[in-house]
Design a protein around this nucleic acid. Structure first.
Lengths: 146, 146
DNA sequence: ACTAAAACCATTAAATAAGTAGTATTTACA
DNA sequence: TGTAAATACTACTTATTTAATGGTTTTAGT
């Protein structure tokens, strides 16, 4: 039940893009410096995010990346789902043919419930929320109200 | 964000113990047969559950295992926590000294929120619930109301 | 042309997960 | 009191996943 480094870095990457939303884009180098993450690693992580249409890019000098949509229109669920390769905490939840016991499995219900809660929770937080929290806080603790 | 096989098998193991609660205990062999899980592997998984006091054991012929408490007094949170070695989806949530950025981290709040939801959800389901669901259902889908 | 940036392609080291194997110990029961 | 059925203990193995690193190619602004 750990969240991967990929997804965490991806979230911070997307946060940086949200912070600079409206400007002319930001380079990976800048993001890597701001967040203290390897630029090379970020360049791997950004590929699927771009492929799924969350990000647009500009090549050449003064190039960089920008969000494809408004930060309020991108939630954490999408980001984590893309970077973790799906949000199913258990393969048999989506594909019940994987386990012939699925139909009578005594524990399947709990995992399904848990999975839905996770999705719900991530879906309720947008990049805009992250930016707002970040701008509001100055030492005080974060609070989400869902 | 996958749930480990250990935790899943552990949950089914505990479910079997809950099913036979009140009887004179059940052997690992029987549990392994009922659930179609390697007995050897289960014998590894059961060690920490016993160490944490969720299970008691009887050695020798006619020996076996039994729940140490009533099924209604054991929830899924305990089981998963023991078998996953903690329920923190991210180490820095418990130990903020692990990351010097913790205090100003823009994403820490979401992970913390998600972590709490997961704990809440697992805590709300007891072994008794699992047994009841199992006894009630005969083909119809599982439903939890939390 | 030069250069800064994305895009692409391949490799690797370490950790974790999943499971196996074998031995020792306890104890009910004949 | 010997035997067999069960737990308890210790060690090993194997495959997969994770978290990176390194180098080359393409694009485009000045």
């Amino acid at each position: 039940m750990k969240i991967s480094t990929r997804a965490r870095y991806g979230a911070r990457l997307m946060f940086e893009l949200a912070l600079s939303y409206g400007d002319r884009g930001i380079s990976l180098r800048e993001i890597a410096n701001n967040e203290g993450i390897s630029e090379k690693y970020l360049s791997q992580i950004i590929i699927p995010l771009k492929a799924k249409g969350l990000i647009i890019s500009f090549r050449g000098p003064c190039g960089g990346y920008a969000l494809a949509r408004d930060p309020s229109e991108i939630n954490l669920r999408e980001i984590v789902e893309i970077l973790e390769g799906g949000l199913s905490i258990l393969d048999c939840l989506n594909n019940s043919s994987l386990c012939k016991r699925s139909m009578k499995c005594p524990t399947r219900g709990v995992w399904d419930l848990l999975n839905n809660k996770i999705i719900q929770t991530l879906e309720a937080v947008t990049l805009r929320d992250l930016v707002e929290e970040f701008l509001n806080k100055s030492g005080d603790n974060l609070t989400y109200s869902i």
